Each structure stands twice: as C-alpha cells, then as structure tokens.
Simulated assay, not measured.
Amino acid sequence: MHSVGGFGGGTTAARRAGGSKVDQAYLALKRAIVSGALAPDAPIDKNEWCAIFEVSRLSITTAINRLAFEGLVVVEPQRGSYVAKIHLEDVRQWMLMRRALEIEVVGVCAADMPDDAIAALGQNVAYQMAAITSGDLQGFHELDTRFHRQMTEGLRLGRVGEVLDPIRTHLERVRRTLLPEPGRPEGTFREHEAIFRAIAAHQPDQAKNEMANHLDRVSRELQSFVVKHPGFFED
C-alpha cells in the first residue's frame, strides 16, 4: 500500500476548493501526481482514497478515469490503476512549443513591458532569492511558475497565455522532478535574474538569448535525469 500520509496539503487544498467529492478527489490525486508525491508507476489504492474523502469506490473510480483521460493515470484490468510514466516524445514536443513562444514573448517584454510590470517581475526575483535562502523549495517553485506567467500578463497577452498555460501544466511533472536536483534552484534563479536584467535594460535580443539559455538548460538536465532514472519515463 502506498501511503497517502504525505499528501495532506493536497487533500486540504482540494477540500477548500469546493466542488463535489469526486472533484476534490480528482484535484488531490492530480496534485499528488504532478508534484511527484505519487511517482511514475506508483499504484493508486482506491480504498485509501475512499477513506480520505469518505466516498464510494465508484466516485474514486470516476476521478481516476478523468486522470486516465488526461494521460496521468493508466488503468489496467486485473492489475489496477497506476501513475502513468512520463512520455519523452510528448515532453520534447511541449518543450519545443514552450521554447518558441516564450522566447518571442520575452523579446516583446524587453521592448514594451510597462514599468510597473517590470517592477513586479523584479520583486518576484527578489522573493525567489529569499525562498532559496530559507530552503523553501515549494515557495520557490510557485515563484518560478509565476515569474513566467507574469510576462504574458504584464503585456496583456491573454491569448498567448491560454496556449502556454496547458503546455506548462503538462511539463509540471518534469519540472517538479528536476527541481530537487542539487544546484537546480540556484541555477534557475541565476537564469531568471539574467532574464529580468535584460528586460529591465530593454534589450530584446539579450532577453531572448537568456530565455533560450534557460529553457535549453532544462532540456539538457532532463536528458541527464532520464539516464539516471529510466523507470520514470517511456518513449
């Protein structure tokens, strides 16, 4: 049995979010998978989740089926439900799309981002440093995600954000997996700081180069991680 004791934050947040118990179970399971609390190929014990949310097996099965439709869970007859492995080809394509869009966005930021939005981006970078100093990995992750989203929001590029947000969600499991690697938060912070400085200096070409360097490093580290943890992935 894979204990759910470490998922308290996710279940509490799901309950606060409201909705039906099926929705709450779905959100809690999704958070556990995306955050890495439930690792790839880990079994999902329906009885445990039924007990946590005080719902029937049918309700948990419904939640699991929604996650299976999203590609986060694999349901096999006679074997049960398991967390899906990460498909490398999907990750490569998502990274390609994200790279193309975010490099263009950061160039526009350096040319046209309003001063108040640049100041907010700088505040985010300062908070990232504080999170690293205090060892707050979860806080740093949230600031990292916010840093990238602030660029489209600061330019009011709502349609671009609508395209990027699902891509980032798909890549969330990969990012969460890489973040605990030694030196990764510090490296990410330095790259974010370089991106911010180029934006603040209104240097579009430099900003685009720094963003390309940032995203390319993620791709390289993913390949290195795959070699060390092949069981998490499949082609």
Rank of each mutant, 00 (worst) to 15 (best):
V75S: 14
D115T: 11
A111Q: 10
Q223E: 12
R16A: 15
I167N: 05
D165E: 14
F69Y: 14
Q150M: 15
M151Q: 06
V73Y: 01
A120N: 13
L179T: 02
D116L: 07
L67F: 11
A100Q: 02
G135P: 00
R31T: 12
Q203C: 08
E70F: 01
V160T: 15
V91I: 12
P230Y: 05
S56G: 11
P180K: 07
F7Q: 12
A111V: 00
H170W: 13
T12V: 09
N124K: 07
T152N: 08
D205I: 10
H148F: 07
V108L: 15
Q138I: 11
G80C: 07
K85E: 12
E210I: 06
R173A: 15
A131F: 03
F196V: 00
D205R: 05
S81I: 02
A84W: 09
M1P: 11
K46A: 03
H192Y: 01
A14D: 02
L222I: 09
V226Y: 13
E172N: 14
D235I: 03
Y26G: 03
R99V: 07
G5V: 06
T169C: 11
I44Q: 00
A17R: 05
I33Y: 04
G8S: 15
F147V: 10
T12E: 05
I86H: 11
A126Y: 08
R176L: 14
K208V: 04
C50S: 14
D216G: 08
E162I: 00
H170G: 13
L222A: 06
H87E: 14
L121Y: 01
V227C: 07
R79A: 10
G187K: 15
F147Y: 15
M1S: 05
P40Q: 07
E221Q: 10
A201S: 12
V75C: 13
P43Y: 03
C109V: 01
V105H: 02
E221W: 00
V218H: 15
L96R: 09
D205M: 14
D41T: 13
S134F: 03
K46H: 08
L179I: 13
F140K: 07
E172W: 08
A207R: 06
V83P: 00
I33K: 01
D45R: 05
K85P: 03
L143E: 05
V74Y: 06
H148R: 01
G8L: 13
G36S: 00
L171N: 03
R156K: 11
C50I: 08
M95S: 12
G9Y: 03
M129S: 11
A84D: 13
A119C: 02
P185F: 04
N124W: 05
T62H: 06
E48F: 00
V160D: 05
H214Y: 07
G135M: 11
R168H: 12
Y82D: 04
L121W: 02
C109Y: 02
V83I: 11
E181Q: 13
R159D: 09
A28I: 01
C50W: 08
G187M: 01
A207C: 04
P180W: 09
Q206R: 15
M97E: 11
R173W: 05
I33A: 02
V174A: 08
W94H: 10
G231Y: 12
K30A: 14
E104W: 07
M129E: 15
L101Y: 08
A25C: 11
L171K: 09
F225R: 02
V226R: 03
N124S: 14
I44H: 00
G8R: 15
H87W: 08
